[in-house]
Nucleic acid binder design. Structure first.
Lengths: 238, 238
DNA sequence: CGGGCGGTTGAGAAGATTCAAAGATGGTGG
DNA sequence: CCACCATCTTTGAATCTTCTCAACCGCCCG
C-alpha cells in the first residue's frame, strides 16, 4: 500500500498563493479594504457585534467558535490563507466569535464592498467565489463528521481535509504539515472531549495511520488514511 | 411561567412572503431564472453534479444531505420558503444531494446569475443576502447542536429555530407549526439514532416542553423551552 | 387482509464523558 | 542556569449517554 500521495499532488505548480495576493490587492485598491495584522490568540470580532465586516485571510490561522452557556465551545471554522470570514451582513456571525490562533494577516473591509467585488467578472472574483463555495462544502463535511462518524474516522477525515487545504494554500504537504492546534482546540472543532481525542490520537498513531504531535501532523500511510476515512478532496480542490 | 410567546412576535406584520415573491420575480425577469415545481421526495440535484445551479425556495420543504459509505446519512440543511440552495459554483454541493421533502416550488437558474443579482443594490438583493447570512448562521448553530449539546437540548434548540424560520416565512407560528419530517429524518438532521430521538421526544413531551407528532410540533411551554435550550433567535430574525 | 413504513419499547453493548492525577514541555524570573 | 509555573498531554477508573439488536404496535394503502 502507498505510503505517499501520488507525485502530481505535490509537484504541480500551485497558483493559489498568487491568486490570493491578487485578490487581496484588488480588495484594497478598489473596495476600501485594509491590510491588517493580529497577534496570536487575540479576539478579532466578538459575538453580538452589529457591524458587517469581512475578512480575507492572507496568512496564519483563525478560528470561529460558539461559546455555550455551560462553558463548552464548538469551533465552527478554522480559516487559513485564502479563506473568507463574515461575508454578507453581520447576522451570519451574531452568535460566533472570531479570534486568531496564530499570528494572523488579513485584508478586511465592509461586507457590502465584498459583495461588490464578488459581482465583477474577474479571476479574483472567481477566487473569492471558490472560497465561499469551499467554506459551505467544509461545513457540510464537518457536520457529517460530527453527526455521523465515530471519533477515529472523524479525526482522520478532518486532518486529511486540513492537509489538502494547507497544501492548496501553499503552506505544507497534505500528508505532512504544521498545525498550531492544541488537542483541546482540535477536540472543540471535532465535538469531542480533549481526553477522548487524546485516546483516539493514540489509537491512530498505534495503528500506523497518522501522528499528531504538538505542532505537527504526519500521515504514516496516506493511502490507508484516505481509505479509512472515505475521503474525497474534490469539494476543496476539485 | 409563560405558556405563549409575547404577542408582538405573532401579530406584527410579516413582510417576508412579499419580499420573497418580489425577489423571485426579479430573478425570473432579469436573471434568467425559471419557476419550477418538484413533487415530494424527489431527487433534485445529485452529488457529483458539475453544473452550478442555484435555487430559491418559494414554498415547501427541501433537504440537503450527505450519504456516508456505511449507509448512514447526515442532513445538512432543511431549506424552506425564502432559503437559497447552491449559490456559488458547483463545488459547495459536490458531496451533497438536494431533494424535496414535500411538494416544492422553487425559482432556479445558473449560479453566476444569482451572483449578478446579489450585486445590485436593491431590497431584493438585500433579501438574498440575508438568506445567505442566515444559512451560514444556522450551520454554525447546527454544529454547536450536534457537537456540544445533549440530545434533548439539541432537539429542542433545533425545533425552536425551525419555528422561528417558519413564522418568518409566514407558514406557522413559532410555538405551533406543521412539520413534515419523520422521526427518521429529524434524527438524521440532529446526528442521532431514530430510536434515541424517539426516547428523547418522549422525555420532552413528558416534562411538558413540547410535543412532536407526525406532522405537527407544538410547544406546551415556550418560555421553558427557550430557557432550557438557551435559544436566541437574533441570528435568524435579528 | 397483508405489507410496508413509521413509531415505540426493552435489554445489553459500545462509545464518550467525567473526575482525578501525574508526566511533559516551554517560558519566566531569580 | 535553575526553580517554578502554566499549559499541554497522558493515563486510569467509574459513569453516563447513545447505539445496536430485536421485537411489537398501529396505520395507511394496495
Amino acid at each position: 500500500m502507498g505510503v505517499h500521495p501520488p507525485s502530481e499532488w505535490t509537484t504541480k505548480a500551485n497558483r493559489q498563493p498568487y491568486e490570493l495576493q491578487k485578490a487581496g490587492r484588488l480588495l484594497v485598491e478598489r473596495y476600501g479594504f485594509v491590510s491588517r495584522y493580529y497577534p496570536a490568540e487575540k479576539l478579532i470580532r466578538d459575538r453580538d457585534e452589529r457591524e458587517a465586516r469581512s475578512y480575507l485571510i492572507e496568512s496564519g490561522w483563525g478560528m470561529l467558535y460558539q461559546s455555550l452557556p455551560d462553558g463548552d465551545r464548538q469551533i465552527v471554522e478554522l480559516p487559513i490563507a485564502g479563506d473568507l470570514v463574515g461575508h454578507f451582513t453581520d447576522r451570519s456571525l451574531r452568535q460566533e466569535t472570531f479570534a486568531s490562533v496564530t499570528d494572523l494577516r488579513v485584508w478586511e473591509g465592509p461586507a457590502t464592498q465584498l459583495s461588490a467585488a464578488l459581482a465583477h467578472n474577474s479571476p479574483s472574483a472567481d477566487f473569492l467565489h471558490r472560497a465561499i463555495a469551499r467554506q459551505r462544502a467544509m461545513l457540510g463535511e464537518r457536520m457529517a463528521d460530527i453527526g455521523r462518524r465515530g471519533a477515529a474516522l472523524r479525526t482522520t477525515h478532518f486532518l486529511l481535509e486540513l492537509g489538502v487545504r494547507l497544501e492548496c494554500a501553499g503552506v505544507g504537504k497534505r500528508h505532512d504539515y504544521n498545525c498550531p492546534l492544541t488537542q483541546n482546540m482540535l477536540a472543540d472543532a471535532l465535538g469531542l472531549t480533549a481526553i477522548h481525542l487524546n485516546r483516539t490520537l493514540r489509537e491512530t498513531r498505534e495503528t500506523g495511520i497518522f501522528q499528531f504531535r504538538r505542532g505537527h501532523v504526519s500521515f504514516m500511510d496516506y493511502a490507508a488514511a484516505i481509505a479509512f476515512a472515505g475521503f474525497d478532496p474534490s469539494y476543496i480542490a476539485g
